[in-house]
């Protein structure tokens, strides 16, 4: 136990403690004033920009999570129930795009959504539009589309595992007892795959909430998220304590949302059972 604990302490507890401590400091010149103060947190409460960005990031991540889970569930389902040989190959093929660096995928989306990009060029060629669509790139849409694609693998894999584990005899039993395909799915398959769906939701929601690369490159002026505000504080704005306070607030905010979601899920599961 001991070595693992040491690693945990060095890797997680110490940095978190530094972050929390720093969030009570304030900036002084290039360094820090270490007198504890709540000023940073007060600012987050008082200035509307921070609340608005938290809300916007929540909305973006929420949309991305729902989109990704909805789009990936059928894929996971297909591989689990309708692919009988070479499942591994299917999984590898589905996750192939994710062997590439996240940053490169973001740039690839820039090429696809760009002014002279794949979508605009095709639509122009087909005569469906007269002018390239400006809304595709440097917009909130661009951020949501890219994030939904970028995290798809994290949705497919856990949902696939959950679906694989469902005992097929239960489905047979449901059919024998008179359930049609739709009812059978809703009463047996879906509830039993909920742990995978839940894992997918967490695996997507949490990291996208703090993402900053995608909005920085594709978001334009209106597409920025809370992660960008934090990054700026550690970069050009040079106010690390403020950045630390924002990070702490973001972490608490995500934890609160996750807790609410867990409670909802538990209630739903106990109702079903």
């Amino acid at each position: 136990m001991a070595p693992a604990l040491v690693v945990l302490a060095i890797g997680i507890v110490v940095p978190a403690a530094i972050l929390v401590t720093m969030s009570f400091w304030s900036r002084k010149g290039l360094g820090f004033d270490m007198t504890p103060t709540l000023a940073n947190y007060r600012r987050i409460l008082d200035e509307p920009i921070f609340g608005a960005f938290l809300a916007r990031s929540f909305t973006f991540s929420g949309i991305v999570t729902v989109l990704t889970v909805l789009l990936c569930y059928p894929m996971a389902y297909y591989v689990a129930f309708h692919v009988n040989s070479r499942k591994m190959l299917w999984i590898v093929l589905i996750t192939l795009p994710f062997w590439m660096s996240y940053l490169l995928r973001v740039f690839a989306w820039k090429v696809i959504l760009g002014y002279e990009g794949v979508i605009n060029a095709s639509l122009l060629e087909l005569g469906l539009i007269a002018e390239p669509l400006q809304v595709l790139l440097y917009s909130q849409t661009a951020v949501i589309v890219t994030l939904a694609h970028a995290w798809a693998a994290f949705a497919i894999l856990p949902m696939n595992v959950s679906l694989e584990k469902i005992d097929r005899s239960l489905l047979e039993a449901a059919t024998v007892l008179g359930d049609g395909p739709a009812t059978r799915f809703l009463r047996v398959t879906l509830p039993m795959s909920m742990p995978g769906v839940l894992a997918a939701v967490f695996l997507i929601f949490i990291p996208t909430m703090g993402d900053y690369v995608t909005p920085a490159l594709l978001g334009g002026p209106d597409g920025a998220m809370i992660g960008n505000l934090i990054q700026l504080r550690f970069g050009p704005v040079n106010n690390w304590p403020m950045g630390a306070a924002l990070s702490v607030v973001l972490a608490l905010w995500i934890a609160a949302i996750a807790a609410v979601f867990l409670v909802l899920n538990r209630t739903a599961q106990s109702r079903l059972a």
């Binding site: 900036r27 509307p48 920009i49 608005a52 002026p221 960008n228 505000l229 700026l232 704005v237």
Partner: peptide, 16 residues
């Protein structure tokens, strides 16, 4: 100056 300017300019760019 730099910090005040950067903070204000970033807010303006973000639409605030």
């Amino acid at each position: 100056f730099e910090t005040r300017m950067a903070e204000l300019f970033e807010m303006i760019k973000a639409g605030f």
